[in-house]
Structures are given as C-alpha cells and as structure tokens.
Design a binder for these strands. Structure first.
Lengths: 364, 364
DNA sequence: TAAAGTGTCCGAAACGTTTCGGAACAGGAT
DNA sequence: ATCCTGTTCCGAAACGTTTCGGACACTTTA
C-alpha cells in the first residue's frame, strides 16, 4: 500500500528521476521502511530483517542511489575518505623520471583495485615541501599518504608522525619514528660491483644522486661498502655528485670524471637517467662503450633495453614497488601505530654496456 | 550577557580547545558574534560591519579555524570540490610515456597554483574506461575532468557531455559536442616532411600510433597531407601502425619497414618512444643513422637530446600544454557550456638523426 | 510624525547521513 | 498475569555550515 501511494505520487513510469540525486529518504519510501532502517540495511547492520534488507537493497538499486559522501563524513568524521594522497617534494622533481611515472601508474592501479582514489599534489613554487601536505591533512583530504623522493631529514615524516596520520615511504629516511616503508635491499649495488670486478675492472667510479635525499646517501653508502667488500680502494675522487636526477646531470658528472687524471674504467650511475647522460657524454667524446669504459645504471626503465648500447642496470620491480607501497599504506590506515619495513631486492640485468676492462687503460 | 553565560558555561581559561577541530561556533563565541555573522564575515559578504569582520577573522586565526568541507558541501552542493580529475584510458596506457609524465607534472603545478587539487584515477582491469569516470562523477569527486589519450570515438566525451560535467581534452575526438580542447597545430608534420624533402628524401615512411586513438588518426591525416603538399606519392605500404605507444612497438614497426622491397630513406615516428624503438631496430641491423636512413620523432621528451644520435623531433611544449589544459578546464568550470579550441604549434628541433638522402639508396 | 531606506545583526531551518535510546511485539519461562 | 529475552523497528538528535527571512536601530525623506 505504501508502495502504491508512492507510485501515484511520483507519476507512473519513472521513480523521481527529476532533478538531483535520490536520497536515503527516497529509498526508504520506495522500500516502505524508515530512513533509519534503510541506512542500517544498506550498511549491513545486524538488527534488520532479511526481508527488509532485500527490499532496501532493491529500492536503492532501482533508484540508482549513491550515498552522499559529504553527509556521511559530516556525521561520522572517522569514516575516512577512501582516498590516499601522493605528494611530490618540489615542482622541479617530477615525473620526467620514467621510473617515477611507472611507479605512479602502478600505484594508481593498485589504489583502484582497493576501491580507493588517489589524490596528487605538489607544493606551489613558493611553498615549503611540507606546506602542501599540511593543507591536505588539515582539510582531511586523504586517509593516508605516500611519500616519494624522501629528503635525508624529511620534515614531512616528522609532521605526519606528530599528527598521527598514516603514511608510507619509499626509502628510509634518517628521521626516527614508527611507520611503514618500502626499501631497496642493502646489498643491491654489490652485484653490480661484483659484475664489474669479474670483468677485470679495478677503478670503478660512481655518478651519485644529488645530495640531500635519503636515497642518495643510502646508495652511496652501499656503493662504498661494495667496493670494500671486493678489496677495491674507495677513491673519493671517482665519485661525483650529479646536480640533478636527469640526463644532463649525468652528462656533466661524466665529463668531470673524464677530466680525472686517471679516469675510471667503469662507472655506475645511481639511476638510469644519469647513466644515459653519461653515455651521451662518452659518445660525444668518441669513446666506445663498453670498449673504452663500462656503464651501469639503476632502475631499469623501459628505455634501457632500447638505447645503443643497451644498458646494464639494476632492475627495480616497479610494479611490485607500487603495489607494496599501497598495500602497506592501507595496512597502516587500519593499524595506525604500526612499524614495518618491506625489502625489495633489485636484480642485475646484464646487457651490452658492460664489458671487459680495456687492456690499454688510459683512455682520452 | 550572552558572552558571560558562555564563559561560565565553558570554564574559565580556554575556549574549548579540548579535542577536535574548532568549529564556526567556537569562532563566533570568541568573537562575540552569532554563527551567522561569523560565517558571513569569513566569506566576505557585504552586510557585516568592518569591526565585526576584523574580530571574526582574528578569532578564526587565533583558533586555527579551518572550515569543514564536508559540512559546506552538504549545505551547498554547488560549492564545488576545488578538485579536478585526471583519468587514464586503461591500465596499460600509462605514464611510462615520459611525455605523459611531464604533462602530468605540469598539470599538477598549474592546479596547485589555482588552489585546486588533483584527483587521479584509472579503471580497474575489468572495467570499461568510462566506468571509473562514472564513479568519480557520481560521487561528485571533482569539479571537472581532463581527458588524456582520447580514443577516436571516446565514450567519456559523450558521457561527460550528456551529464553536463565540465571537461577538457588533449586532442580532438570525432565525437561532436561543445567543450574545450587543446590540440596540436594542423600543419605540424609539414615542417618535418619539408625538412626531409630539403635533404633530398623522396621515400618517407611513418610509424603511426596504434589505431583507435584520436591522435593516431589526426597525425596520420596530416602526414599524408604533408606528403601531398610536397608532391610525394603517399605510398600506403610505407606507413606502419605500431602495436603500442612504446619502444617495442617502434622496433617491430621499423623491422617491418626494413622488410619492404624498397625501404624508405627516412622515417617519422609519431612519438619519440616509437622513434627510439626504430633507432634500436636500425642499430641492431648495423644501419647508420642518418647515414643510411633518417629518423624523426614527435614530442621532444628530455631524452631525445641524450641518445646517440640525438633525435630530430617535433617539440611539443609540454609545460605549456599542461598549463593550457588546466586553464581551459577552470574556464569551463566557470562557464560550463562553452566551446573553445586552443591550438599549440609544435616546433621542429633539428638534431643528428636526420641527414641527406644516401646516394646508393638501396640499403640492406 | 509617519514612512521609507540603510546598515547591521541574528534565529531557525536546511543539507543527507548515522546513531542513540527506546518502543513494539512475539514467545517462553516464571 | 508478570517478567524477561530477543528481534525488529523507528523518532529524534546530531554533525558544521550556509542562507532565508525578519528584526532592530538609525537616518533620511515626505
């Protein structure tokens, strides 16, 4: 009878498709229930009869009911936004890096698998990196955050820790605190150095990432450790800091190394873009790779297999990294004060850019 | 008297700083105003005394008041989310393309300049491309959308048009409707062909983007037009569709072209990744670029300057594209039914990968 | 003096949801 | 009859904001 009253009231064919979205009240009327019961039915509470639940669900279906998130959040601020935030450090450190681009793609996919959405933001030009994050947190835009391109002593980590907001990091900053993180294996660079030593190289140089980032320090430390483990003298002058994460940084760094009075016979770029920049520098000097000098990269971006020579590099399983980051973050959202570290081991992909140490070692 | 009652009720020193965020009521009490007036003061309405406005602002400042977005949106659904949505077509078409990565970066920057946030999403593996968009629209997650990687007859365009949701596209789909779009200049490929003709080339091949995308068709049309304009016969067999946007697609396409009984002496890849894949194919065949064959790309990703040989390519001003997309979208949000097209002209960057037509033309 | 206008203010209602407290009812045990 | 238990239901309040309509005190105009 209630249903009948509804039908005549609303017109014949269509159930109030008129203006805006149907509300819970509309569903309740159609189902012949109170708003309360309809809410409980749709949210799977226990004290609702099976029959009622069915009617409620069917009515919701029929009306194309979609709950109003604003209202829900207003009533129950703890309900969360079903959104995760991803933040970049600065406007100049961006997705030009194909590694970051791929990582982002992987994260987007994993996020939607879990029914979440992704919120992406960066500080404006005149802001501190942490400012954009503060804004997002204040507005409760996301349930948790992924921090990329960590700085050595990253303010964002301490801010989120203090605010008790869940987050996950790629890489391990110096900042103390309990949180979840995904990091590369400690000994990743060892296999690269090992490979070079097997080929007879003694003087192994490095093009390091710009200082100030957590990952820069880490890779540097593991590189020197790897050298020591192979009884090579860690010659400080064979390590050059690049001034960017991109190809041009790699090129100028390589040129600096070639100016050395006794240049290395092999060089490891701490990411693929740096290595590719190094290759460009070598090519324009007329040097042959790997004939005159061997080059190794880090990340294994898709391009590494398509340049000439193809690039020997430490492969990071970028899809898996993205998945892990999101999974860890969701775990952190469920259990805020947790502390966990997932280690992922890069794998050396041997290609054309590495070869035996040249016999007459003095190039240039 | 009201203020006095308030004070005694709340205790002496602190104005209810206890637990969660301060509300408008707290600000009002501190300012000695009604909630109504405080709201109007903070929102810059006209019927509030200067003195009151000052007190309200100061109180808000002191309490660190941040308006509750959920409540605001609940009351006034037209107020918008200050968010724009960016959607990708499918999970496999992602930011591996450095062009898309750079574009996204540019958009993120521009978005934050305008005080907006960005919402990024993609359909899950088993969804239609339009499904993720529908979800986002239903939940009113964003005020408008940027559509990338448009398909020839893109369902998302018609869906958003029908739903009267503002959006902007990169490229021009076939779907009719009035909306804003940013497109490359019609004659972009003409300068590339012109350059090759100047170098004496007669047989110019193309590695086209996979079919089904708006941009694929467009570039193809302009390519053949450019050939005609230079009185070259448009030999269909010299045009190969790549089966992906990435390097491997370019490689296999190039190999196919090399299998031609009379291969082209110059090839244009319709994006840089395809061109780089082509270079890889040529290199593994032992062919010299540009000695044996010239190669041109499209986009000018940062890498184009660092491979060997450096890549002649049509530069897309990616930062400007990103800015324009966002600006157009914001304009569309202000004026929903607008129709506008912004044309951006790519510029030919001549580098090492193009040279004179080889004298003994029959390679291989 | 009355009417009309101006500048400033406020109470109350509304947005759509969830939840608290209790009500109505059935059945079984006392 | 009375009490208890359990199931199913609902009214009303609450979340924090904006806005509608009206109110008050003054000043200007007729």
């Amino acid at each position: 009878m209630v249903a009948e009253a509804r039908n005549t009231a609303n017109g014949d064919e269509r159930p109030t498709l008129s203006s805006s979205r149907p509300t819970l009240r509309d569903v309740a009327e159609l189902a012949g229930l109170s708003v309360t019961q309809t809410s409980r039915a749709l949210n799977g509470h226990s004290d609702v009869a099976n029959d009622s639940r069915l009617r409620a669900e069917q009515a919701a279906q029929e009306l194309g009911y979609v709950p109003n998130l604003a209202a829900r959040r207003l009533k129950d601020p703890g309900s969360g936004t079903q959104t995760i935030g991803v933040t970049l450090t600065s406007t100049t450190q961006r997705f030009s890096d194909p590694f970051l681009g791929d990582l982002l793609s992987a994260m987007v996919d994993e996020v939607s698998c879990h029914g979440f959405e992704m919120h992406l933001f960066s500080p404006t030009a005149d802001e501190e990196p942490v400012a954009a994050l503060e804004r997002s947190v204040r507005h409760k835009r996301a349930d948790g955050y992924v921090l990329l391109r960590l700085e050595s002593d990253d303010q964002r980590v301490s801010f989120l820790s203090d605010a008790h907001v869940p987050f996950v990091t790629l890489g391990r900053p110096q900042t103390k605190g309990s949180y979840r993180r995904v990091v590369g294996a400690e000994d990743s660079l060892d296999s690269a150095v090992s490979h070079l030593v097997d080929l007879g190289h003694q003087r192994v140089g490095a093009i390091a990432l710009p200082p100030g980032y957590a990952i820069s320090d880490r890779r540097l430390i593991h590189f020197t450790k790897a050298l020591e483990r192979h009884d090579l003298t860690a010659d400080e002058s064979l390590i050059t800091m690049a001034d960017s994460f991109q190809e041009d940084g790699g090129r100028t760094a390589m040129e600096k190394l070639l100016g050395h009075r006794q240049p290395p016979t092999a060089v490891i770029g701490f990411n693929d873009q740096l290595a590719i920049g190094a290759l460009a520098a070598l090519s324009s000097r007329g040097l042959d790779v790997p004939g005159d000098i061997s080059v190794i990269g880090f990340d294994d971006v898709s391009l590494a297999r398509f340049i000439t020579p193809t690039l020997t590099t430490l492969r990071q399983p970028v899809d898996r990294l993205g998945q892990l980051l999101i999974q860890q973050l969701l775990a952190a959202i469920d259990d805020p004060e947790s502390d966990h570290e997932v280690v992922v081991k890069p794998e050396l992909m041997i290609r054309e850019s590495t070869g035996p140490r040249p016999t007459a070692a003095t190039a240039n």
